[in-house]
Amino acid sequence: MQQLTHLDRLEAESIHILREVVAEAQNPVMLYSIGKDSAVMLHLARKAFYPSPPPFPLLHVDTTWKFRDMYALRDKMARESGMELLVYQNPEALERGINPFDHGPLHTDMWKTEGLKQALDKYGFDAAFGGARRDEEKSRAKERIFSFRTATHAWDPKNQRPELWNLYNARKNKGESIRVFPISNWTELDIWQYIMKEQIEIVPLYMAAARPTVERDGLLLMVDDDRFPLLPGEEPVMRSIRFRTLGCYPLTGAVESTASTLPEVVQEMLLTTTSERQGRVIDKDGGDASMEKKKQEGYF
């Protein structure tokens, strides 16, 4: 008898899901957001199809406002995995100069929600892998692993296909698509443990270092480039910070920390008293049911 650990079983389940999609979908793609969850998902894909490279491209729906370290790792991982990297920027958002400083919620809506829909339509992808986890947020806890979307990308939480055993129904009509979440059953701790066990490369911003910051609206923001408009009297201050999640740098709050190694980061995570998404501004628009509403509109 060989006792499989929880990481062994989570890995096996995720690989099974990745392979089912490749076997049954016509034109799959992996949404790659460069965060730690994406890093794990990409690593699992490389394991699932080894020695072949994963037989689908990576898609980064870009907002032009990610951290510079993220862009660097993105390009490196695409090279190493031997996968095609598609970068999509919503042309309308680009033209109108939509940014998180001046446009508030419109920034997420146009770059991410609209950008994603446009990219999926443009390339005709019928299945898109995403790195969402059920422990992140309450409405995600009820979403299926194979989450069906109508031709207009809408999600109907009341009309989800029952998902039995590990049998996934990937059938759909023309124009419809599925979002697939291979790491649905992983928790934040599982992700960190797996990153350590498999020595997966992640963006260095997860580890503490001295970085230029300003404090605004209760969030500690990093001044990652000179597009950051400083208010009168604001002066970037060097602080030892790290990030628990990564998104657009003007929307992502840092935490003050000295945890510069993975075990130290996990140590802090376990002893911390605030949940993961708290550092993100977008979840708070519209109060309690915010994420569920975004998902119905087509956000991942």
Partner: peptide, 23 residues
């Protein structure tokens, strides 16, 4: 469940312990 003392004092020992959980 999650022994704060062990996490604080010896994170490596804690991680070792949790690396081998079943599910």
């Amino acid at each position: 469940y999650k022994t704060d003392a062990l996490i604080a004092e010896n994170i490596d020992a804690y991680l070792e312990l949790h690396q081998n959980k079943s599910m």
